[in-house]
């Protein structure tokens, strides 16, 4: 079976998309979990500020999410555009 160059490129793009999203999901998942753990600690220490702490947690997590979204974008580009 002769495999053409374009065929190998497509196969590599699929594997690459899987790895990009898969490995890219590790960091944000762990990082956002740390944020949530510390937010729980903060609310435990100072429950009166729960609203402010929830807002801070969500903003921090949104920033930490960005690399996960980059991975998603790259994976979708590899799947549909390249």
């Amino acid at each position: 079976m002769a495999i053409e160059g374009a065929e190998i490129v497509k196969a590599a793009a699929f594997i690459g998309a899987g790895l990009a999203m898969g490995l890219g999901a590790i960091g944000p998942g762990v990082g956002e979990g740390m944020v949530a753990a510390k937010a729980c600690e903060a609310i435990g220490r100072n429950p009166k500020e729960a609203g402010l702490l929830t807002r801070t947690m969500l903003v921090g997590q949104a920033v930490s999410e960005s690399t996960g979204i980059y991975s998603l974008v790259v994976a979708l580009l590899l799947l549909f555009v390249v």
Partner: peptide, 28 residues
Amino acid sequence: LGAGLCMGFGGIGPGIGNGMAAEGAVRW
């Protein structure tokens, strides 16, 4: 194969992160 690798690796981080969040909440 890529689908399997993607879901497999992709599940590691959120699993650990959710556990950390739960750890913090339980402790407090």
